[in-house]
Design a protein around this nucleic acid. Structure first.
Lengths: 219, 219
DNA sequence: GTATCCACATACGCTAGTGTATGTGATTGT
DNA sequence: ACAATCACATACACTAGCGTATGTGGATAC
């Protein structure tokens, strides 16, 4: 008889190991949280409703998170924060003239808003922003996020103008602020009135407002 | 004896007439509502806290408003809605070249954000927008507000280009959408991180992005 | 195979808040 | 002066939700 070797990680765990199961629970809670937050808002959501949505009871929640806010913040990082950051870097790596890059970026910003059923991503972000108006913690969270993106975009702007051999008409970080502002402003207007503000305006507006200043050299 | 004339509105009411007193109560409730909404958010505020802040009990509230939302909506109309609309019209009436008008408007938009202690006006509006993401009623409210302003601005844009004798590079309502977007986007970035995004960016950004296209004719 | 562990469920005591029904005292009309 | 009125206060019955303390059954360790 071969000695039964101790297998610390059995190849076929009957079902799920303890850690796997808990990870799954976390995931289900986060998913449920997202759905509940979207329909009730951050403040309007109760731990009760989130766990019910996920098919658990309160015990499951409190052994995975300290508070509703903590779950929300984690959600924000996993689904919003990361995605925008990734997008900013992708745009940087995009080939083509500066104006083509810009156009590509504008298309991606537009696409993010049309995700599946009505831009859950931006709506979570909006929840965060509103909370930021009152809560230092959330304000820092949002500030950090935008600082990062602003610096990234400003860097690209700066590089672009150097490439084209021209001086930016405004400091790069101000231009970056403007570009972010346009994104947020269009997203929120579209959210409120999709008929009146189509997502199609993203590309022409970015191109007109920011594209011309890096064009060959005067039309 | 002269017949004592019925004086429906006595010149010296001892203190306050019934209606005046109730109007005063409404005002105090609205003021209190504003303060409470700003520190707790719309959903986070309770009728209880609002009436306490105003120095009443719940009876006063329910004999003046049907619900918390109703109070909020009235507040929004009185303090946000009206003010922005007024501002849009003022800008239209402003003398000077189109670019000067634009600059003047940008300065006003900037000033609104710096009101006294930290832009309570925009913060109320932000509350409304977040609610709009989930609530049809608020969505309509916000949509109506912006539709009005967009139409107004688009009208000005259209007139301006006719005046300058040039064709707008994009439909006027799209330009208007962009102008509104810039306002919202700057306001929210400033709210979240006043250090990184100064209100000073309003004027140069509006001027650069929207001013040049109506300038004399190419630099 | 038995003891341990721990992720989640259950039970508990508690608070804040709701909307309504009713009370009350000062204003009002006659 | 008297009765009616009504703006606001008070009292009530009720619910949702909180966080903790404790129970439990199926993994896990030895």
């Amino acid at each position: 008889m071969a000695a039964p070797q101790k297998v610390p990680r059995p190849q076929r765990p009957k079902r799920l190991t303890r850690k796997e199961k808990q990870a799954e629970t976390r995931r289900r809670l986060l998913d449920a949280g997202e759905r509940v937050f979207l329909r009730r808002g951050l403040q309007g959501s109760s731990v009760e409703e989130i766990v019910a949505e996920a098919g658990f009871t309160r015990g499951a929640f409190y052994s995975n998170f300290k508070s509703k806010d903590e779950l929300f913040v984690e959600l924000l990082h996993a689904r919003v924060y990361d995605r925008y950051a990734e997008l900013a870097k992708e745009t940087e790596a995009q080939p083509g003239t500066p104006r083509e890059q810009l156009r590509w970026g504008a298309e991606r910003l537009r696409d993010v808003q049309s995700d599946e059923q009505g831009s859950w991503l931006f709506r979570l972000w909006l929840e965060c922003l509103t909370q930021a108006a009152r809560d230092e913690e959330f304000r820092k969270l949002a500030a950090t996020f935008w600082s990062g993106n602003r610096a990234l975009v400003a860097g690209q702007v700066d590089a672009t103008f150097k490439e084209v051999g021209r001086k930016p008409p405004l400091p790069p970080d101000q231009l970056a602020t403007g570009m972010i502002a346009l994104d947020v402003g269009l997203a929120v207007q579209h959210l409120v009135d999709p008929e009146a503000v189509s997502l199609d305006v993203y590309v022409p507006l970015y191109d007109l407002l920011f594209g011309e200043m890096v064009e060959a050299s005067g039309g």
